[in-house]
Amino acid sequence: MRAIPASLDTAVVAEIEQRLESVAAEHGVRIPWAIESGSRAWGFPSPDSDYDCRFLFVGPRERYLTLWPARDVIETPLDKVFDVNGWDLPKALTLIARGNATPIEWLRSPIVYGGDTTFRDELLAYASAVVERAAIARHYLHVARRQQSGPQTLKRFFYVLRPAAALRWLADHPGDALPPMDLPTLLSETTVSPEIRDAATDLIALKSVTRELGSGEAPAVLRRFAARELERAEASESVAPVPDPGEVKARADELFRRLVG
């Protein structure tokens, strides 16, 4: 599978794909899933946004049958354009089991440099079976609260608005724990008012043509929306775990062995 929008720089995409090939060869791993994360995949890039490629990798069985395990992260040189790094399969599986939404977002990214859909679908099915909605809600709540703790800029507000939209999506989809990744889809699949959607669309349009949004305030309607969703999500802090930890570990082990084997 490959899904590259025309808005991406073809030369940059080619370099990312070359880096992925080099990582696979140098580390002796396969990369069944490589996507774009960050503002481009979240639906609100700026003209100078860098490229945040993230990937999941799987080594041969021998990689995991050792007393001296290798790092579970592979990184490539970071610069103003490229931010390319990835996680080993066990790291992704254990983070999903703990309710970390980041690897789930990678599996749902709208921008895919290269991917095995069977691999993706198996991980999403595993996530759907083991993830607690309250844990995902806490993830997005904490992400937003961390952003609110620093200097407030319009750019940073996007990193509050998207988690707030994810929380609203969870509230509007009580039978699902895996929200979409990008802000426009999150809002389109919720019951938010047209006023909120229009304000978000206008702010995204402003960011798309502005290198630095500065320290101005976000539209009041969006600030109120984010505050309401974060306040409502505070209830997730007291929700007790539901899945049996033993069953969750067994599912993770079974999937890990199958994908490595």
Rank of each mutant, 00 (worst) to 15 (best):
T66C: 01
T66R: 03
T66Y: 07
L67F: 14
L67Y: 12
L67T: 04
L67S: 06
W68P: 05
P69N: 02
P69A: 06
P69W: 15
A70M: 10
A70I: 09
R71G: 03
R71V: 07
R71W: 15
D72K: 09
V73A: 10
I74Y: 06
I74C: 04
E75M: 11
E75Q: 12
T76N: 03
T76H: 08
P77V: 11
L78K: 13
D79K: 13
D79E: 03
K80Y: 13
K80Q: 15
K80E: 15
V81A: 10
V81T: 15
V81K: 14
D83H: 09
D83N: 12
D83L: 12
V84L: 12
N85K: 09
N85Q: 06
G86M: 03
G86Q: 06
G86C: 08
G86I: 02
W87E: 01
W87G: 02
W87S: 03
W87I: 02
D88M: 05
D88C: 09
L89D: 00
P90M: 12
K91M: 12
A92Y: 09
A92M: 10
A92R: 05
A92E: 00
A92I: 08
L93Y: 05
L93Q: 03
T94H: 14
T94V: 11
T94C: 11
T94E: 15
L95I: 06
L95D: 00
L95W: 07
L95G: 00
I96L: 13
I96R: 04
I96D: 00
I96W: 01
I96A: 03
A97V: 08
A97D: 00
A97W: 08
N100P: 01
A101L: 12
T102R: 07
T102V: 12
T102Q: 10
T102P: 03
T102S: 13
